[in-house]
Simulated scan of single mutants.
Amino acid sequence: MPTTDPYRWFVYLEIALAVITFVALCFIVAPYGRHGRGGWGPTVPARVGWLVMEAPASLLFLVFFLLSGHRFELVPLVFLGLWQLHYIQRAFVYPFLMRGGGRMPVTVMGMAILFNTLNTWVNARWISEYGSYAVSWLTDPRFVIGVVVFLGGFVLNLSSDRILRRLRGRGSGGYKIPQGGGYRFVSSPNYLGEIIEWTGWAIATWSLAGLAFALYTIGNLAPRAMSNHRWYQETFDDYPESRKALIPYLV
C-alpha cells in the first residue's frame, strides 16, 4: 500500500467504520424489511432503494477501474469480473425479483450510497492501480482459494434469497419460516453467504482493501443476523431450536 498517498487513510477509515457499524447495530436494529418502522424520515419503495444504493458499487467501480493504470492487465480484469458478478446481480437483478411492497428509509439508502462510494473507490484503486498482480497470480493458492470461497458465498447468497422469495408467492403477504438450503442451519444464510463472498475477495486480492471490506461486511451483517434470529424466535413459537443465527452449530 502506498505510504504517502491519502489512499491508505481511506482504507483505515473503512476499517474504523466497520467497528463503528458493528457497535451501533448491536444497539439499533436497521429499520427495513421485517424490522421496518416509523421515525426514520421519508421512505422510498424498497425496490427503488436497493437499485439506487447498490448501482454506484457497480458503475463507479467500472469508472474508477478504467481510469487506472493496470486496467487492461489480466488479473485486474478477473477481479473486475468477480466484483461485477456480485453487484450487477445485487443492483440490477435482485431489486426486480423482490416481492411485497416494503419501503426503505431514505436515510438508510443515503448511508449505503456513501459507504458504497468509499468502498468501491478503495477496492477499485487497489486492484487496478496500487496492487501489482502478475499473470502467475492466477495460479497462486491465495487466488485460487479466494475465488472458490467467493463463488461459494455467492451461490449461498443467491440460493438463500431464492428460498425467501418463494415463501412469498405473488399476491401473498406475511412472513413464514424459511426451510431448506442454508436455512437448515442458520437464520440468515443470505448474510452468511455475503460474508463468505467478501472474505474470499480479501483472500484472492490479498490486500488490506479487501480485508477492510470483509471486516465491514461482518460488522454490518453479523448484528443484523442476530436481530433476525431474535425476531424469528419471538414471532414463531415453533421456530427450530437447533437453528443458529449466523454460523452453523456455533452462533
Rank of each mutant, 00 (worst) to 15 (best):
P105R: 09
S58M: 12
Q89P: 00
L59F: 09
L118W: 12
M53K: 10
V52C: 02
F79D: 03
F96V: 06
Y94P: 09
V106E: 08
H86S: 03
V63N: 08
P105H: 03
W83H: 13
R103P: 13
Q89E: 15
V78M: 09
L97G: 06
V108G: 02
L60D: 09
T117D: 00
Q89C: 03
Y94I: 06
V75Q: 05
H86D: 06
L67F: 04
S68R: 14
L114G: 13
F96N: 08
F92G: 12
L114A: 15
L114Y: 01
P95T: 13
L67I: 06
G101Q: 13
L67K: 13
A57I: 07
N119F: 06
G69N: 14
P56T: 04
L62K: 05
S68C: 14
G110S: 15
F65E: 00
W121V: 02
P76S: 11
F92R: 09
F64W: 12
F65C: 02
F79W: 11
L67H: 12
G100T: 12
W121G: 02
L77Y: 04
Q89A: 02
F115D: 13
V52M: 05
Y94R: 07
E73F: 09
F96Q: 08
M109S: 06
I88S: 08
F72I: 08
F92P: 09
G101P: 02
A91G: 11
M53T: 06
Y87R: 02
V52Y: 01
L80M: 13
V108I: 15
P95M: 07
E73D: 14
P56R: 00
